Amino acid sequence: MKSIILTFTFIFSFVFSFSQDKNTQNITVTISNIKSDKGKAILTLHNENTFMVTEGIQNIESNIENGKIIVTFKNVSPGTYAIMAMHDENDNKKMDFSTNRMPLEDYGMSNNPINYGPPQFNDAKFKVENKDLEMRITF
């Protein structure tokens, strides 16, 4: 009897965990024009409520090799998101600015918009639906 209960428990937990992953997707991001391998690349996945306000829903730091990174945001639920990326060249975990508030480190966003001013969610947003996504971000 005990082994039957354990078997059903195992089957139920396996099926339940598999069904949770079924509704999520992965987003693979490639950046291949990073000017040096110094520091790290930091990428953050945001929804409209977190964009330019707080930490992302998911945050990834990556070492840079030959000016390139490939990272994957895993288990992303369907919805509308934007990705922000920066080259944290001095590895201080923040964007550095000049005295006139211009960024001193390279950055980019999903959709690669050209911004004259602060980044906007509507320029970088994309939808996650029922398939994995691949995208390139340029600095």
Rank of each mutant, 00 (worst) to 15 (best):
F10L: 14
K38Y: 08
N49W: 01
N130Q: 13
I114E: 14
I27V: 10
M1I: 14
L45F: 01
K40P: 00
Q120S: 10
Q58H: 11
I31K: 09
N112M: 08
I137S: 10
K22G: 00
I64L: 07
K94N: 11
D123E: 15
Q58A: 10
L133C: 06
P78F: 05
V76I: 13
K94G: 02
T30H: 11
F10N: 01
K68I: 09
P118A: 15
M95V: 09
K68G: 01
D37Q: 09
K40N: 09
M102P: 00
M95P: 05
S19E: 01
E89V: 14
N26E: 07
N122Y: 11
S19K: 03
P118N: 13
T80S: 04
T99Q: 06
K2M: 05
D88W: 03
I11A: 13
K131Y: 06
I42L: 10
T7F: 12
I57T: 03
V15W: 02
L133N: 01
F139H: 06
E89P: 04
E89G: 12
E105I: 04
I69W: 08
N115T: 15
S17T: 09
K22D: 00
L104V: 08
S3I: 08
A124V: 02
I64F: 07
Q58S: 02
L43E: 00
L43C: 08
I31G: 03
T9V: 10
K40M: 10
L133H: 06
K131E: 13
V71Q: 08
M1C: 06
I42K: 08
N122L: 14
V128G: 07
L104I: 07
I69K: 05
I27H: 03
D96E: 14
F121E: 03
I60F: 01
F8L: 15
G39P: 09
T54C: 11
F10M: 04
N115C: 03
A41E: 02
D21W: 00
Q120E: 12
I60T: 07
Q120A: 15
F12L: 11
N33A: 01
G67K: 06
T44Q: 09
N122D: 15
F73E: 03
F97Q: 09
K68F: 00
I34T: 01
P78L: 03
D37V: 08
N90L: 05
E89F: 08
F18S: 05
P113G: 11
R136G: 06
S36G: 01
T54D: 14
K68T: 13
I83L: 07
T50A: 11
N75D: 12
L104N: 08
R101W: 12
Q58F: 09
N90D: 15
H87C: 12
E129I: 15
S98F: 08
I60R: 02
K74N: 15
N112K: 15
L43T: 03
G79W: 13
F12H: 00
N63D: 14
V29F: 04
E129M: 12
N59H: 07
N115F: 07
A85F: 15
D106L: 11
E48R: 10
N26C: 03
M1R: 10
K125W: 04
T44W: 00
T80I: 11
L45E: 04
F139S: 02
L6R: 07
K2L: 10
